[in-house]
């Protein structure tokens, strides 16, 4: 009897928690993808860099964003990628040169971090499990430290766990963020896997595409023309 009774309590507790989470999830999913009025004047911005063409496209976006609003900026790139963060640093330094209103130090506005990749090309599946776990923990630790208001990414696989954590933060009430995904110019006919995941599961608030035929295929995406 006793065991049965406590079993009932546990079951109803679990039920209550599950329904609270479910209600919260629905709430978050409702407000994701809907424009909102932001009251803050400074938005901590996480920028996920890919390699080569991806980085060039991303930096062209950062170059035209309002630098006093999207600040501080946290740049993240894969640990094996030595060039992308360097290019971001060059951009940030040139922005400081241009900034006439009170010279600021780069340390106040921009941070540069490397992130472990879950799997390198050619790695075996057994070691992949370990490295994936390490990568996930590292991503979580980084996100807890940064807690961005805005996430901007454009394609590398590393952006999916980061966006997922940002989404979980929304559900858990840790931090509300707006997630923007810009599909790379190289994707003409289909979204990349990262883009597709963030689009299908409503994780990204906005998905931008650079080719009109992609917008026709994915109607919730927004066509923004070519970046390069």
């Amino acid at each position: 009897m006793e065991g049965c009774h406590s079993g009932n309590i546990v079951a109803s507790l679990v039920g209550a928690v599950v329904s609270i989470v479910a209600v919260r999830l629905v709430y978050v999913m409702y407000w994701t993808c809907r424009p909102h009025r932001i009251k803050q004047h400074r938005l901590g911005t996480l920028i996920v860099l890919g390699s080569g063409g991806h980085t060039a496209e991303m930096l062209s976006i950062i170059n035209v964003l309002q630098k006093d609003t999207f600040v501080p900026r946290f740049y993240v790139a894969a640990a094996t990628d030595n060039i992308s963060l360097q290019k971001a640093k060059v951009l940030e330094e040139s922005l400081i040169q241009k900034d006439e209103i009170g010279k600021r130090n780069i340390e106040e506005v921009a941070y540069f971090t490397k992130i472990y990749r879950s799997r390198e090309v050619g790695q075996s599946y057994l070691t992949s499990i370990c490295t994936t776990l390490v990568a996930m923990m590292h991503a979580l630790w980084l996100m807890l430290k940064i807690r961005p208001n805005v996430v901007i990414c454009n394609g590398p696989g590393t952006c999916v766990p980061l966006c997922l954590i940002a989404f979980i933060f929304k559900v858990a009430g840790v931090r509300w963020s707006s997630i923007f995904y810009i599909e790379s110019i190289a994707r003409v006919r289909r979204l990349s896997l990262s883009g597709l995941l963030l689009y299908k599961f409503h994780i990204a608030d906005q998905v931008y595409v650079q080719w009109p035929q992609l917008q026709r295929k994915y109607p919730r995406a927004h066509y923004v023309g070519l970046l390069m």
Binding site: R37, S60, V64, V150, V224
Partner: peptide, 18 residues
């Protein structure tokens, strides 16, 4: 004709209510 990122920046601002 080179493209530019202004439209993305405008869309992001619009979404955030700026």
């Amino acid at each position: 004709q080179p493209g530019d990122a202004m439209r993305v920046a405008m869309e992001i601002n619009k979404f955030l209510g700026f």
